Simulated scan of single mutants.
Amino acid sequence: MSKVRQDAWSHEDDVLLAETVLHFIREGNTQLKAFDEVGDKLNRTSAACGFRWNAEIRQQYEQAIAVAKKQRKEKKRAITTNKKSNPTRSLLSVLHQPTISYEEVPTEITPATPLIAPTLTMDDVISFLQTMQNEHASTQQLYEENMVLKQENKKLKQEYEQLQHRYAMLTEQQNGIQEDYEALMKIMDRARKLVLFEDNEDRMAPIFKMDKNGNLEIVSN
């Protein structure tokens, strides 16, 4: 079932949209996901929620947005600090170790010579690869979300242009009707004046009668 809502946004709808977006910002999620969640709750499209947020609500919550972004940054910093306090070294730290100089390279490699740092385990390698995979997936998801927003924005622009064209046509039609109406009123006004003028002429024409002597005399006016 498609989402079709033509009614206006209520104050409660705006508050729900704002609280959801701020929550998603604090948690490090995208605003598009917040629009999807609000759209499901209010039976509106994600594009409609995004348009409402950017056009009407966002400017009212600038300070709250800044606080939410700060909380997200502090949360990430705390997670990073916890990772650094872990005694297990990550694969990145091993790969970025200083290069061994030629003087430090042993002249003879024996089985006792370690080629990999002994603290690097298979779990470290797997964890690193999973992290890289998750980051790649997140980047891909952001790219796809961006493409969806671009397509929706393009569609909205096309609909806006169509509405503008239709509005111009209706305005032109209305102007034509107004001109025809004014021309008709002028014709009717001239016709009315002409009828009144002819009636006056008929009433003003004198009526003559000839008497017994052959003279004309006015009977009535």
Rank of each mutant, 00 (worst) to 15 (best):
L17E: 05
C49Q: 04
A47M: 12
H11S: 15
S46D: 14
E19Y: 02
R26M: 05
W9Q: 09
N29G: 11
Q6C: 07
Q60G: 11
D7W: 10
V15A: 12
A48N: 12
N29E: 14
E56C: 09
L22G: 02
G39A: 13
Q60L: 15
A55M: 14
G28S: 01
Y61H: 09
D36Q: 15
T20K: 07
F24V: 03
A47G: 13
E62K: 09
E12Q: 15
Q60F: 10
I25Q: 01
I65N: 01
T45E: 13
I25H: 01
Q6F: 12
V15H: 08
N54R: 02
H11T: 15
G28K: 06
G50D: 11
V67W: 01
A55T: 13
I25R: 00
I57E: 05
L32H: 09
S10T: 14
R26T: 05
D13A: 05
N29C: 13
H23E: 14
F35V: 00
V21C: 02
F24I: 06
G39I: 08
Q59A: 02
D40M: 08
E19N: 00
S10M: 03
A66I: 13
L42D: 00
K41Y: 10
N54T: 07
V15G: 07
E27N: 09
I57N: 02
Q31V: 04
G39L: 11
N29T: 14
Q59S: 04
Q6H: 06
A8C: 08
D40Y: 08
A47T: 09
T30Y: 08
Q60K: 14
H11Y: 13
E62W: 02
Q63P: 02
L16S: 06
G39E: 11
N54V: 06
E19R: 01
W53K: 02
Q6K: 15
K33S: 15
I25T: 02
L17I: 09
E19F: 01
Q31W: 00
N54G: 12
E12H: 15
H11P: 13
T30G: 13
E19H: 01
S10H: 05
D40C: 07
A8P: 12
V15C: 08
R58W: 02
Q6V: 05
Y61S: 11
N43Y: 08
R58Y: 02
D13F: 04
W9C: 08
K41E: 13
N29S: 11
I65G: 00
S10D: 10
E62G: 07
T20C: 13
A34M: 04
F24Q: 05
D13C: 10
C49L: 08
W9A: 06
R44S: 04
L42S: 00
A66T: 11
E27D: 15
V38Y: 01
L17K: 04
E27K: 09
S10I: 03
Q59C: 06
L16K: 04
D13Y: 05
A66P: 03
V21W: 01
I57L: 14
N43E: 13
A66Q: 15
E12R: 12
A64S: 14
D14R: 07
L17F: 11
D14K: 03
A64D: 07
E56A: 11
K33P: 12
N43V: 15
F24R: 03
N43M: 13
R52C: 06
A18H: 09
I65W: 07
